[in-house]
Design a protein around this nucleic acid. Sequence first.
DNA 1: GACGATATGTTGAAATTTCAGCGCATCCTT
DNA 2: AAGGATGCGCTGAAATTTCAACATATCGTC
Lengths: 163, 163
Amino acid sequence: MAQARWLDDDEQATWRSFLLASKLLMDQVERDLKKESGLSFAYYDVLSRLSEAPGKSMRMADLAVACVFDRSRLSHTIDRLARDGWVRRQESSTDARGQLAVLTPEGMKEVRRAAKLHVERVRELMFDRLSAEQQKQLREIGEVLVTGIADEAALRRMGWPMD
Amino acid sequence: MAQARWLDDDEQATWRSFLLASKLLMDQVERDLKKESGLSFAYYDVLSRLSEAPGKSMRMADLAVACVFDRSRLSHTIDRLARDGWVRRQESSTDARGQLAVLTPEGMKEVRRAAKLHVERVRELMFDRLSAEQQKQLREIGEVLVTGIADEAALRRMGWPMD
DNA sequence: GACGATATGTTGAAATTTCAGCGCATCCTT
DNA sequence: AAGGATGCGCTGAAATTTCAACATATCGTC
């Protein structure tokens, strides 16, 4: 029973392959994004969520869930984005605890500029290399893993497509 | 041509699914590892590579490549691991620039303890949820992405299985 | 063997992330 | 409507990671 739950060679290779692929891919994407637009992926992620949200704004807590940040990290991150003028805070009208992060017009321009380069890069690194079949497989695998980890409430807040 | 390289809906969903799955998975794995063993994944990764290496030691540069750290990050990380007594430094006998990171017996015990919990968790989060078919697919997808990003020299240094 | 080009590992400071805990608001039960 | 439980967002300090630069060593070539 000691070894019962160990990983066999195939599993080991699968895990390593997944791990390395995501590390290398994100590393490369980060590096390029930063070099070409000055934004880290974390900043880009926040701005890009806001840019898609109705009113170009989101509750802090929802934004944190969507970006998979804890609340503290998001708070600090919004501080910096606000200092740079890409985002501003606004009080929620319905919940006195609530703060809204709102994308400024300058922030919107910034994301757009970055998005162009970013998407290009993702395409080169991922989609140009995987067959249509593999893309479908990857999507399904991702969905299985995601729904296995996040509960329904979290998925909803992330804007995950519920069937 | 402006939109020629944009992502369509399927691609967008695939990318998001991959991104979210790896974030959530690593997040969860990190959190559990830390809670149960006190080690961050970065520390665990370093120690675990060393534990598998011949002589339980590696050149700093090779270890950095294997962990996908830059040299500076590895240097600081080894500082901390050395302070905790899990690792010690040793000069290379063949290259006067070289430093070897060597796993101490205490470090070895530490990884072993952590590995047990870690592997258990990876199994629950990943392998218990994916079919054999999906595991095979994921492995191949990972390999395609990895070889698309890292050059042959880097792969070799990572200990990547070359055919 | 001298030369510049490249590789190795470290350092210190700056930027970012993590961690523990706070104050306040809303929710839920009674 | 009082009470506690929970949710929200923020803060400051500690830990970690990033960044630019350095000193030294090896490599390749002439």
